[in-house]
Simulated assay, not measured.
Amino acid sequence: MKSREEYATIRAKEAANKAFYAREDGVAAAPHTVCLSVNTNCFMRCRMCDIGTANAAKGAPGEPRLFSGRYSRPGRQREFPLERVLELVDELAPHGPTIKTNFVEPLLWSGLERLARYAKSRGLQFYTITNGWTLARHAGWIADTGVDLVRVSIDGPPEVHDRLRGVPGSHARAVAGLKALVAAKKTLGTERPILGVCCTVSDHNCRHLLPMLRGLREEGLLAHCYVNINHLQYTTAWEAEQSREQSPLLAHASPCSLDGVDLAAIDVPALAEQAARIAREFPAGEYNVYFSPRLEAGDLAAYYDPKAWMFPGTPCYLPWYAAQLDMDGNVGVYGHCVLPGFGSILDAGERGGWRGFMDVWNSERAREVRLALKRAGSFAACNRCIGTLYPLRGRD
């Protein structure tokens, strides 16, 4: 399936970028993927997400979280300036990265179609991620534009998904959106976009993964979609505290993705059994269902043990691979990455206009952060990030 080819292409790009890790100056090649936070508009109340739990709290005071503070702030809804994004595409076009809109709900951003069309006109791949609520109404232009990949969040069978997301009818809307895209692709006779379903494991759905897949099969979607079942990426209080002690660069580290999740309620044996049953019922030769990271029995128990540190000091190469921009134009590394940003592309440049992306990507601050990470290998708050779980990636 095309998703496997896409995965192999990304791994090849990472191998090329990794060559820069050996440099002593912290300089990196242009990232193979540039992710954009294009708005602050998310109405879901997902229990495994800091933004969702903040939405559910309706502004009640609480400890600030790195994830929600970075991508979704209270008050008037904001959008990333479209003019700057289009100029960014021009800057990046010679380097050929994939452009991905991943926060907060891209299909609610007014500039999405224009950005997608422009990125494709400049020869770049374009991905987007969505909760699926408005996907059906966008299906026509997405298929017509040649968007390369659309990933939709589905976190269980209908009743589980809707309860977890706090919005009744959200499962039905996501499924309808996927079906609309399948139909639009058939009408146009195109293989793009690749369609994906993303599920995040938590205590709310850890016993319902197999029913979710069976439901998607009954809807006729598994013939058209890959499914990524992602283990919850979380940061505990001790990991955040130890990271703050490890480096002044991590003074802002905080717990992540735990306000609405009870780790003790995650049934690890049941989760392992479901993974085994999924492998038998949805074999790789017939279906495209992946766990990320791919954890085996011992790793699975450690992963959901809040006291365990799986691979202390394991090298992380993500700051040499991928970039994430937040709403202030700050260039960082990865959606959940604890590392600080490198600078903003919304700042004024030395010669007028905006500060260039590559100037920020290899700024003095960027090189300082990369070299600090290289010396440490990784930090405590990196414990369950895919960047430090590369020892498990060879199983894929």
Rank of each mutant, 00 (worst) to 15 (best):
E24D: 15
E296P: 05
L112I: 15
D259G: 11
H231G: 05
Q233C: 13
A348M: 05
V201W: 01
A308T: 09
L124T: 04
E6N: 14
V360A: 10
W320E: 13
I154T: 10
R214W: 03
G140I: 02
N41C: 14
T236E: 09
D347E: 15
D144K: 15
F311T: 02
S344D: 01
V34T: 07
Y321F: 13
P61D: 15
N383S: 11
V268K: 00
W320P: 07
M327P: 03
A322R: 10
K186L: 13
T235P: 11
M1L: 14
G377N: 11
N330F: 10
H252T: 12
V34Q: 13
A183M: 09
A322V: 15
F103V: 15
R122S: 11
P319F: 12
A116E: 08
G341P: 02
R355W: 12
A366F: 04
D396R: 07
G394I: 12
D328Q: 06
A143W: 04
Y71T: 03
R294K: 15
L82R: 15
K120S: 08
G394Y: 08
S202L: 00
D148V: 06
E83L: 02
R114Y: 14
P211W: 00
C225H: 10
L86Q: 03
L66E: 13
P64L: 06
I51C: 04
R23N: 05
E83Y: 01
R370V: 03
P158H: 03
A253F: 07
D305E: 08
G335S: 13
G329A: 12
P391R: 09
A15P: 08
A57I: 05
P391Q: 14
S292I: 11
A237H: 12
T314I: 08
F379D: 08
G285M: 05
R367L: 08
A30G: 06
V331H: 04
A376W: 06
R114H: 13
E63M: 13
P293C: 05
D328I: 02
S243P: 10
Y321C: 10
E91N: 09
R375D: 00
Y317W: 07
P64R: 12
R45A: 04
Q233P: 06
G62M: 02
N41V: 15
R4H: 12
A366T: 06
E83G: 15
F43R: 08
N39G: 12
G377P: 10
T53I: 04
E239C: 12
W133I: 02
R370K: 08
L149D: 04
G260V: 04
C337P: 01
V333A: 11
L318C: 05
A30N: 09
A237T: 12
I194P: 09
L389C: 09
V338R: 02
R375L: 10
W109P: 13
D203F: 01
A301M: 08
Q233H: 14
A380G: 00
C382L: 10
G196E: 02
R384F: 04
L112A: 14
A270K: 03
D326G: 07
S3W: 14
G298M: 12
W133N: 07
H95T: 06
L195D: 13
P248I: 10
P97L: 14
Y21W: 15
I154P: 03
F43H: 13
G329H: 12
